[in-house]
């Protein structure tokens, strides 16, 4: 298995390099002010899809923080399970935040080149900016709670509360007829079959490769955090809501001052 992984990693990077070169050699798209620069789309589109995918994944993992599954766990084991789901939610939100920033950067670049201004207050642009602010609110709230269990609860609830505005902002508002009429940003490009030929193939391939990269990064991130939790639990360093989560059967070392030494110090 390890050998297969070692083989797949270089293969992935070779494939990514080939597709990156492919993005430069496809014929220019028609209907743009600077057709050569329309290639930003190959990077912009997968970033926006992954942003949404990770945001909804984060919302699902936050939901799992609160979902009660009766597995006969003790309260400490349940708390640890919650922390594990919370770590997964955090990892998904972190990756979503990175993709949100990349979406904004590539979108701004596209706007500057094709529409003549770096920021248009276009409804779609602004929707993604608000999504970025919601990510900011999530991390601000997380950092305000030092206790891991409270952090999991409060940030999870905020993540769930953000589902409604995110759904509205990204999937409903930009598709309203009155908004579409004034927006520069196209909608339903793929669903209406506007991406044809090599442009379509490059876009889909790039989306697949970036998704693989995201999943790989996500797995690395969660593996580190889950190992940290397991190690803290094993060593008796894990504290949940102010109480120790030391596993049963483990004796914690206690330093007892030597009576003779104490007497000497007193004298």
């Amino acid at each position: 298995m390890e050998k297969l992984k070692n083989l797949l990693r270089p293969l992935f990077f070779v494939a990514f390099s080939i597709v990156t070169v492919w993005t430069y050699i496809v014929p220019d798209a028609k209907g743009f002010q600077y057709p050569a620069m329309a290639r930003i789309f190959f990077w912009h589109f997968p970033c926006s899809i992954l942003l949404l995918a990770f945001m909804f994944t984060g919302i699902y993992f936050s939901f799992r923080v609160f979902k009660r599954v009766d597995r006969g766990f003790t309260s400490v084991e349940s708390a640890i399970e919650k922390m594990q789901w919370d770590s997964r939610a955090e990892a998904a939100m972190e990756l979503g935040f990175i993709w949100a920033i990349l979406t904004m950067v590539t979108g701004i670049l596209f706007s500057l080149v094709q529409w003549g201004a770096w920021w248009q207050w276009d409804p779609r642009q602004t929707s993604f900016l608000i999504a970025l602010l919601i990510y900011g609110g999530y991390f601000a709230l997380r950092n305000s709670f030092p206790d891991p269990e409270k952090r999991a609860h409060f940030s999870g609830a905020y993540c769930l509360a953000s589902a409604l505005p995110i759904f509205f902002l990204v999937l409903v508002y930009p598709r309203l007829p009155q908004v579409q009429a004034v927006s520069f940003h196209p909608t339903n490009t793929i669903m209406q079959g506007q991406l044809k030929g090599q442009y379509g193939y490059v876009t889909i391939t790039m989306l697949v490769l970036m998704s693989i990269l995201s999943v790989w990064l996500y797995r690395l991130r969660t593996r580190v955090v889950l190992h940290e939790i397991a190690l803290d639990y094993k060593n008796g360093n894990l504290e949940i809501s102010g109480r120790s989560a030391t596993p049963s059967g483990v004796v914690r070392p206690v330093s007892v001052p030597d009576e003779n030494e104490s007497a000497t110090e007193r004298n």
């Binding site: 608000i130 602010l133 919601i134 900011g136 999530y138 709230l141 902002l169």
Partner: peptide, 13 residues
């Protein structure tokens, strides 16, 4: 301060 910071993005829609 945090109340305003987390509420405003949710209220913009």
């Amino acid at each position: 301060a945090l109340a305003a910071a987390i509420a405003v993005p949710l209220l913009l829609p």
